[in-house]
């Protein structure tokens, strides 16, 4: 299966609520790492916040965006104005 099909299958079958749970757990870990450096400004917390903390936080937000993409794929987009039926004299 090519990668594109794989991604599409994932997007069709993934559980949104489970993705949201992962996003929340990662988000919490990221927030803890980022907040730690606000109060302890040694090199370990500062470095952790700016690398690992922000990395995990970004991942959490990315998971949320995946949920949005899943929803957008399922949404039906109807044009708000129905196209006119072709008139016989047009062709």
């Amino acid at each position: 299966m090519n990668p594109r099909a794989k991604i599409e299958r994932f997007l069709d079958n993934a559980s949104r609520s489970r993705l949201m749970v992962y996003a929340c757990v990662l988000g919490l870990i990221g927030l803890v790492l980022m907040s730690w450096s606000l109060f302890d400004q040694g090199w370990i917390p500062v470095m952790m916040a700016m690398s690992v903390g922000q990395g995990i936080g970004t991942l959490s937000f990315a998971l949320f965006l995946v949920i949005v993409i899943i929803d957008l794929r399922k949404a039906e987009f109807r044009p708000s104005i129905t196209p006119m039926p072709p008139k016989p004299e047009d062709d």
């Binding site: 949201m20 996003a23 929340c24 988000g27 990221g30 927030l31 980022m34 907040s35 450096s37 606000l38 400004q41 500062v46 916040a49 700016m50 903390g53 922000q54 936080g57 959490s60 937000f61 998971l63 949320f64 949920i67 949005v68 929803d71």
Partner: peptide
């Protein structure tokens, strides 16, 4: 979803940006 967008997006990004500022100053 709107609420979660704020919780995993907007607010943590605020924290991260301020954290960067403070982190650079901390050095």
């Amino acid at each position: 979803k709107l609420l979660m967008m704020v919780a995993v997006g907007v607010l943590p990004i605020m924290t991260a940006m301020i954290g960067n500022l403070e982190g650079l100053q901390a050095t």
